[in-house]
């Protein structure tokens, strides 16, 4: 007598209720559940899925398909610039809309080089605005990157408290630049054009199966087109279940203030002195190959 001899309904409680039938005459133990389901407490890997023959059961196939569908929708979702601008306007923060040298999703995905440059018209606009605005301390950029939902949900909740903190410290900020289809490195060209001291880019990270709305934040001190990823600092996985926006704002404020105080950025700026009040588990390394996301040697979450 094994657990498999049990009545199929007993073997498949709540989870398979959609297949509920008064009596299943099938005498074969198929599909089967795995008697090591308790091990699931130890990892969120998809273990003990059970099987139909040697294949996955309907429930686990559909669960996986749903997770992937959500990630795909996130990758292809439209950047809601109007809605994001309205969120900032509510808090009294001005925005300006610009364009990268790419304007459609397939080209964005295939040509990372274009997402690292401004469109010619936007470059001209920014040159003119630079004269009006004058040199300031910090330019903040917001883009969809690989997840428009990340920008829509977490950019303003992170940026508003961050801007308040920095202004209280006497920092001057440019209007927030909203730029669809951007890559991290675009912050260097924009920052250099404006003569900003710091450039801070927020953009959606590549969606995973478990989270499709993680926001990443990257900044450079003295942004310049010659900057590399070694010159960047990063706070990643900004979302409620990861680094919550308020915590990300505190951490970024601390890193930016330290960067300004010490006159350094990138790998030279360590976060090991970070005050205990800040969440220690968040990532804020300067990462190797932020845009060269695909090297398996570095399992970095790309932007």
């Amino acid at each position: 007598m094994t657990h498999l001899d049990a009545h199929p309904k007993a073997a498949f409680p709540a989870e398979d209720s959609r297949n509920d039938r008064p009596a299943n005459p099938n005498p074969f133990p198929c599909p089967t559940r795995d008697p090591w389901e308790a091990l699931r407490r130890r990892t969120f890997a998809r273990i003990a899925l059970g099987r139909a023959g040697g294949s996955q059961r309907t429930a686990s196939v559909l669960e996986f398909r749903l997770a992937h569908a959500r990630a795909r929708d996130a990758v292809h979702a439209r950047f809601e610039a109007e809605a994001i601008a309205a969120q900032f306007a509510e808090s009294g923060l001005a925005t300006e809309r610009l364009a990268a040298a790419v304007s459609d999703r397939p080209t964005f995905l295939m040509r990372p080089d274009l997402g690292r440059r401004l469109a010619e018209a936007s470059r001209e606009t920014l040159r003119r605005r630079a004269l009006e605005w004058g040199a300031r301390d910090l330019v903040i950029l917001v883009s969809d990157g690989h997840s428009a939902n990340a920008a829509l949900r977490h950019a303003a909740p992170t940026i508003v408290p961050l801007a308040n903190t920095l202004r209280a410290e006497g920092w001057t900020l440019y209007p927030i630049l909203l730029i669809p289809f951007a890559r991290v490195k675009l912050q260097d060209e924009v920052g250099a054009l404006l003569h900003a001291r710091h450039a801070l880019m927020f953009l959606g990270e590549r969606p995973g199966l478990s989270a499709s709305d993680s926001l990443g934040a990257y900044f450079t001190w003295r942004p310049d087109p010659a900057c590399t990823d070694a010159d960047r600092n990063c706070v990643s996985n900004i979302r409620a279940e990861g680094t919550p926006p308020a915590a990300a704002a505190r951490k970024l404020a601390w890193l930016l203030l330290e960067s300004a105080r010490l006159g350094i950025g990138g790998v030279a700026l360590k976060d090991d002195q970070i005050p205990a009040a800040l969440p220690a588990q968040t990532e804020s390394a300067s990462l190797p190959g932020i845009d060269e996301e695909n090297r398996r040697d570095f399992a970095v979450d790309p932007s």
């Binding site: 890997a45 099987r51 294949s55 995973g208 199966l209 478990s210 398996r296 399992a299 979450d301």
Partner: peptide
């Protein structure tokens, strides 16, 4: 990979079940 979902590297590969499909 359990359920084809690599939770560390953030990509999808083939599952234990997939190998049984192919072997069958």
């Amino acid at each position: 990979v359990p359920g084809a979902d690599d939770i560390a590297l953030g990509y999808q590969s083939t599952s234990f079940h997939d190998s049984h499909y192919l072997r069958q």
